[in-house]
């Protein structure tokens, strides 16, 4: 078995007095597709936000590709990571947000090109070419010079995915990417995710309420409940054969 690309080791997270995550242990393999489900407030989003360095764990360690994400060694002691260390380790991680978070003052193409040029120091020509290819892939090749506010929610989310993909991440995080969309726009976004998943190279972590979809593409489903991973396994194990009461009642709400 190959080495995991991400490891959570006894990770906890509290906001003030509220303990949102109570000791998460989790391995994610390269190219594995993990779906995270669970009631709202169960810490699903926090789980991946810590991996994207948007939220610092209260305790425990997250290892990315063999490197400790939130801590670094300094004079033989482990200290909180500084910006430089974070930026080195998170380089292989990309994220798509619930509310898209496109840059409103840039065109679609500029949105995609900016990071490869500025962060990866790719030359403009090739970044432009790759960005256009990526936008064509998500079906927006005709919108290159439009601004985000001229697009529908589904289109915006597809741009956000293209923007993350041109950075060639090894791990992609999806934070309830369809929750802010009108129902009729959900499918076009899911389709793009499905395409990405089928290409297979990237590890993907999807926090989602789209149960059917999660079961369809995920290698593994995690049921997060009350700050712990209450259930973990293949979709059929978790959904059909789990004895977990809370999971069953959670799933019933989706079936009805």
């Amino acid at each position: 078995m190959s080495k995991p690309i991400v490891t959570y080791d006894e990770v906890t997270k509290s906001f003030g007095d509220v303990e949102v995550l109570k000791g998460i242990n989790l391995d994610i393999m390269p190219s594995e597709k993990v779906a995270v489900i669970g009631p709202s407030g169960s810490g699903k989003t926090t789980l991946i936000r810590m991996l994207m360095t948007l939220e610092q764990p209260t305790d425990g360690a997250i290892i990315v590709d063999g490197e400790n994400l939130w801590q670094m060694e300094e004079k033989g002691r482990l200290v909180d990571a500084d910006e430089k260390h974070l930026s080195k380790v998170r380089g292989d991680i990309g994220m798509v947000f619930q509310h898209f978070n496109l840059f409103p003052h840039m065109t679609i193409l500029e949105n995609c090109m900016m990071a490869p040029v500025q962060v990866q120091k790719e030359d403009k020509k090739s970044a432009r070419k790759r960005s256009i290819e990526m936008l064509e892939k998500v079906g927006l090749g005709d919108k290159l010079d439009n601004f985000p506010n001229q697009l529908s929610g589904g289109q915006k989310q597809r741009v956000a995915m293209a923007r993350a993909l041109v950075m060639r991440p090894k791990i992609m995080l999806f934070d309830e990417v369809t929750s802010a969309l009108d129902p009729e726009l959900v499918e076009e976004v899911l389709e793009v995710i499905r395409d990405i998943a089928l290409e297979g190279e990237m590890a993907m972590v999807l926090v989602t309420h789209e149960m059917e979809f999660a079961l369809d593409i995920a290698d593994r489903v995690l049921f997060l409940d009350d700050g712990v991973i209450a259930e973990s396994g293949t979709p059929s194990e978790v959904i059909e054969h789990s004895q977990n009461e809370r999971l069953q009642s959670f799933l019933r709400r989706f079936r009805s």
């Binding site: 948007l54 930026s87 380089g91 990309g94 509310h99 990071a115 962060v119 993350a164």
Partner: peptide, 21 residues
Amino acid sequence: SNGQTEAGIALNLTPFQRMRY
């Protein structure tokens, strides 16, 4: 909005680049 900063972090921009661009 804070989401803009977060998108910048997700694309691994430096703090200066996030401010500048």
